[in-house]
Design a protein around this nucleic acid. Structure first.
Length: 427
RNA sequence: GGAGACGUGGCCGAGAGGUCGAAGGCACUCCCCUGCUAAGGGAGCAUGCGGGCAUAAACCUGCAUCAAGGGUUCGAAUCCCUUCGUCUCCGCCA
């Protein structure tokens, strides 16, 4: 949610900024809503004030056992207009909220301007893709040859876009998550969090997945009760820890890390990445979340991205960092870096982490604030990033550490999680 | 799943149809007093959204908010309904 004051006072600058990301701000509708709101709200509040003061008089008269019937008649005269106004105002505010809720965040000035991912800008590269003396296989080939990755059975159990791992591959998957959690907690100062995998609509509105992207979510309907949704990312439960809170300045920054499965319906992605584990309905992710004071968020964004990069470096996986262009930016984000890992079978860098600074956009929706000074309350800034997507990291390890015989070496840094085992082979 | 009790500011807690955005306490901020280490006195201290205001702070003022939503009423923290949550007992369960 953008600051409505900014829209009121500076709508042309807002529209210009949004245009960079391909969003056309409907200024006429805004002005129309705003002028109707102002008139209606002022009038309604005036009527309410009248009613309140007259009602107070009634109370005072009755306390003195005096006749209040003429004042009561006055209030009754107000009633019709007041109720009609209250209803119209509520409708108008709902409409206004709906209008505001689908406006994306403003990109930071440093975000490269572009229409799509084609105009993303590479910031850095790390590591050199390995040269293979044999024909590389992709992770599907490798996993099925090992007898430890099975999409057919997963489809039988659940459906398409699920995976089933067994044996050392399942253990590798677990080891990766453990390693990421250990690194972020011990070396990067994050607090480990275990959070619900089902969340309510208010939480999803807080982080921006609702109301606009309901189709991407798995929804659990319960009779009578409010629906719950499977989390698309740990960002949702973890960031919402601070929803409707006023934090003491001393507790900031909050640095939280959380390993969860993530569930995405992948509506609208039919036909894309249908092979293998790249795009699944269920995948694990280790998520980094930071809640920081407003002026600290840009530095925190660089730091957090570095924390995610550190995982790739310690796993010895070549990657690059890309600044998303305005056209590729997520709805809530003011600036995003994607980390892309080298996949030898695709001969391409593929997204494995997305690190975003949301500034006050989520905080405003969540009413997540902190005391920034004496009697001064400010919205926090929120950030998050994958550190990393576990399934995709598994894919990258398999493909980059494969041997000619189809076995997969275990990256040295993961071997402590394997009791000394160095290679995953058929068994 | 069944039965009952409950949900009030940063925290504890009073409040039972009108002068209640809400006593009192704790915490916090400022001032005074006091030569010391959780002494005393005074003042301030919820949030959101409007209007004054074309702009920032300050200030004044209005409305809303006592878990959430709806209802009764001239008037609701207070009465009624629904939902959510907490606690206690029973049942079930890893």
């Amino acid at each position: 949610m953008l600051d409505i004051q900014l829209l009121r006072t500076n709508i042309d600058a807002v529209a210009e900024s949004l245009a960079k990301r391909g969003f056309v701000l409907d200024r006429e509708t805004f002005h129309d809503l705003e002028s109707r709101r102002k008139a209606l709200q002022t009038r309604t509040q005036e009527l309410q004030a009248n009613r309140n003061s007259l009602s107070k008089q009634i109370g005072l008269l009755k306390a003195k056992s005096q006749d209040a019937s003429s004042v009561m008649a006055q209030v009754s005269a107000l009633k019709g207009e007041l109720e009609a106004n209250e209803i119209r105002l509520a409708e108008l505010l709902r409409e206004f909220d709906g209008f505001l809720a689908v406006i994306p965040n403003l990109p930071q000035d440093s975000v490269p301007v572009g229409r799509s991912d084609a105009e993303n800008v590479e910031i850095k590269r790390w590591g050199n893709p390995r040269r293979f003396a044999f024909a590389v296989r992709d992770h599907v080939d490798l996993g099925e040859t090992l007898g430890q990755l099975d999409f057919t059975t997963a489809a039988k159990i659940a459906g398409t876009r699920f995976s089933l791992m067994k044996g050392s591959l399942a253990r590798l998957h677990r080891a990766l998550a453990q390693f990421m959690l250990d690194t972020h907690t011990v070396e990067h100062g994050y607090t480990e969090v275990y959070a619900p995998y089902l969340v309510n609509a208010a939480s999803l509105c807080g982080t921006g997945q609702l109301p606009k992207f309901e189709d991407d979510l798995f929804k659990i309907l319960r009779s009578e009760a409010e629906p719950l949704y499977l989390i698309p990312t740990a960002e949702v439960p973890v960031t919402n820890i601070v929803r409707d809170e006023i934090l003491a300045a001393e507790v900031l920054p909050l640095k939280l890390v959380c390993h969860t499965p993530c569930f995405r319906s992948e509506a609208g992605s039919y036909g894309r990445d249908t092979r293998g584990m790249i795009r699944q309905h269920q995948f694990d992710k280790v998520e980094l979340v930071q809640i920081v004071a407003a002026e600290k968020s840009s530095a925190a964004h660089e730091e957090l991205t570095g924390h995610a990069e550190r995982i790739l470096e310690r796993l010895e996986l070549p990657y690059r960092r890309v600044a998303l262009s305005t056209g590729d930016l997520g709805f809530s984000s003011a600036k995003t870096y994607d980390l892309e890992v080298w996949l030898p079978a695709q001969k391409a860098y593929r997204e494995i982490s997305s690190c975003s600074n949301f500034e006050s956009f989520q905080a405003r929706r969540m009413q997540a604030r902190y005391r920034s000074g004496r009697n001064k309350i400010e919205l926090v800034h929120t950030l998050n990033g994958s550190g990393l997507a576990v399934g995709r990291t598994l894919v990258a390890v398999m493909e980059n550490f494969q041997n000619a015989d189809g076995s997969v070496d275990i990256p040295p840094v993961l071997r402590p999680y394997f009791g000394g085992l160095e290679t995953i082979g058929r068994h």
